[in-house]
């Protein structure tokens, strides 16, 4: 475990907990895309199938359980909680799941390391994670008025991705057999999707004005 990996995991953890705490405390999910949250729940479900077959470390198991639990909790809050679900802006969050899920599934069936159920699901989860933020980014652009917590949530997710790339570079030089081009390409695509958001996030921070994305 290197410092970039740990910082990346912690940023990821904080982003999810910030979101869950926000929804729990203010009983509102305004500005949050249910589509993105459902895609993340699917990402973690398909990626962590090895929870039942391989033991890596206590850290690994606990983190996997937290990501699974928190992502399903967030989806539950937005769909089922009697107060929270009223703040969900269904008409703005229009991205179709299958536009994202189907291409990722086809790609995972075509491009993978091993043709086994677990491996194809794992590969699918990498492709899916790369693009799962899209409904959220579309929603941010539509809503215009982005509250601080939603902005911080997306910023933390982007930071997590950037730290993982540093982690891969570090591991590439320190672990002789560390090779995984599928992870690298999916990860780089995912990080690039945040580039535009980052630009406006830093602009608003530098100029001390409220974050707004251009139409």
């Amino acid at each position: 475990m290197n410092i970039f990996r740990l910082a990346g995991d912690m940023t990821h953890l904080v982003s999810v907990l910030v979101l869950l705490l926000k929804i729990h405390t203010i009983k509102s999910c305004a500005g949050i895309s249910l589509k993105t949250q459902e895609l993340y729940a699917l990402v973690f479900t398909t990626r962590y199938l090895d929870l039942f077959t391989d033991y890596i470390s206590l850290y690994n198991t606990v983190m996997k359980l937290i990501f699974l639990g928190s992502s399903f909790s967030i989806v539950w809050y937005i769909r089922r909680h009697k107060i929270v679900r009223r703040s969900y802006d269904k008409d703005q969050d229009t991205f179709r799941h299958y536009f994202i899920v189907l291409p990722c599934l086809v790609l995972a069936l075509l491009i993978h390391h091993k043709f086994t159920f677990k491996e194809v699901m794992w590969t699918f989860s990498l492709y899916l994670e790369a693009v799962a933020i899209l409904p959220q980014l579309v929603l941010l652009q539509r809503t215009r008025n982005i509250d601080n917590l939603t902005g911080q949530y997306v910023f933390l997710l982007g930071a997590y991705r950037a730290l993982y790339i540093l982690n891969w570079i570090y591991r590439h030089y320190t672990e002789p057999h560390y090779v995984h081009w599928i992870t690298w390409i999916a990860g780089i695509v995912q990080t690039l999707l945040y580039a535009d958001f980052f630009y406006y996030y830093f602009q608003s921070w530098k100029n001390n004005v409220k974050l707004q994305l251009p139409a």
Binding site: M63, H113, Y164, V179, H180
Partner: peptide, 10 residues
């Protein structure tokens, strides 16, 4: 190349 190591990541 055979992949290795990456499966310990989240």
């Amino acid at each position: 190349a055979e992949e290795s190591g990456v499966k310990d990541e989240l």
